[in-house]
Amino acid sequence: MDASDLRIALFSGNYNYVRDGANQALNRLVEYLLRQGASVRIYSPTVAEPAFPPNGEVVSVPALPVPRRPEYRWPLMIPPRVKRDIRKFQPNIVHVASPEILGHRAVTLARRMGVPAIASVHTRFETYLRYYGLAFLEPLILAGLRRFYRRCNAIFAPSESMAQLLREQRMNYNVGIWSRGIDTDIFNPGRRDLEWRRGIGIEDDVPVIGFVGRLVMEKGLDVFSDAVDLLERRQVRHKVLVVGEGPARDWFEKRLPNAVFVGFQGGEDLGRAVASMEMLFNPSVTETFGNVTLEAMACALPVVAAIATGSESLVTDRVTGRLVRPGAIETFAEALTHYCQDEEARRAAGAKGLEVSRRYGWDQVNEALVGGYIRTIRQSARPARSPVP
């Protein structure tokens, strides 16, 4: 069996209507699978004006806006017309990308059809509650996630640190790795553009601390702001550059009145923005991998990040950047001060990060997942062992 024998039904709560790292990874995966001759059909909520064109054919499923986050959709069910489409497609594996109602229904349907189901883990959903005053509900969310992932034949994490956490949480004991890749044509040190920096009001010799990502509170915007406040009070020369959009932009702009906000940047524009920084500051604990961390490393930037799943697998403390206990404002500020004031330390950490980033290519990581698909299909086809008398 090889990739051309695969018939994959992919279920996603957000395939392309909002741009984020998870759905861009899924789209890259589908593009790769189609190039290898696989058959893929995507089932996801859709909107009239998606964030970007989808790779592959998308079958729309009914959904409602998420309360307090209306830019996201909450899938409701798999209606009869979609079930007929799935059965007509005759998948030999089901891939579920998010543990909501659509994901649960997809796994149930796969089991009824006798088809193996795998899940890819993109986000630490249980951590989101901490940012909305609902941390006491985290054990219930973990229990729900455990029930979902245990019904799958296998699950795939984007980093070894996340895979180990999933094992410790007893989510599933068949945990593989589907990492994330980097497009080195877009993210490389050669994209640095001092003229562009001057155009947005940043002097050539001022150290730039960058934030890249969706502007939502669960990305650690409060920690970022508090650490920058300390730099301001200590008169550490720096400039903050924020790349991204989101519902918390107004809040973030008020907290960082001296920062430069350039909004959403994509493709080569994003590569230019990242390469034009001196360092990336990523205090988030919700990512399972941290695409922005890898992109910054590919641009030869040191990364100051929280000790969290994903970051731990990419950043080596005091080698490619700093890993800091989540929420430790003072330590974050000290790490940022070090890289703001020591140009040689920045260069050394950036060079090591660039070296690490070269291990990650999209075709290589997607090829590994294809191997996981084939292995799961073969394992599910084996007859169950008779119980020992």
Score class of each variant (00 low, 15 high):
3 A>L: 07
16 N>G: 06
19 R>C: 01
26 L>T: 01
30 V>N: 07
30 V>K: 06
32 Y>Q: 04
44 S>H: 01
50 P>W: 07
54 P>C: 00
79 P>M: 10
79 P>H: 11
80 P>V: 13
86 I>T: 13
89 F>A: 03
95 H>E: 09
95 H>Y: 09
97 A>W: 12
100 E>I: 12
105 R>K: 13
109 L>K: 06
110 A>K: 02
113 M>L: 15
122 H>D: 02
132 Y>E: 15
141 I>V: 15
144 G>E: 11
146 R>E: 10
149 Y>E: 07
160 E>I: 06
170 R>E: 14
173 Y>C: 13
179 S>G: 01
195 E>L: 12
197 R>A: 08
197 R>G: 09
201 G>A: 05
204 D>R: 15
206 V>N: 10
211 F>Y: 14
213 G>K: 07
215 L>M: 11
216 V>Y: 02
221 L>N: 06
229 D>Y: 00
229 D>G: 00
234 R>T: 02
237 R>K: 13
238 H>M: 05
242 V>D: 06
251 W>K: 02
253 E>G: 03
260 V>L: 01
264 F>R: 11
272 R>P: 08
273 A>M: 01
275 A>W: 11
275 A>S: 12
277 M>R: 12
280 L>N: 06
283 P>W: 11
284 S>W: 06
292 V>D: 12
293 T>D: 06
297 M>D: 07
297 M>L: 14
298 A>C: 04
304 V>F: 03
306 A>Q: 10
307 I>S: 15
326 P>C: 14
332 F>V: 05
336 L>K: 10
337 T>Q: 15
340 C>S: 13
341 Q>S: 06
343 E>S: 08
349 A>H: 13
349 A>D: 14
353 G>W: 10
377 I>V: 15
382 R>Q: 15
384 A>R: 13
389 P>H: 10
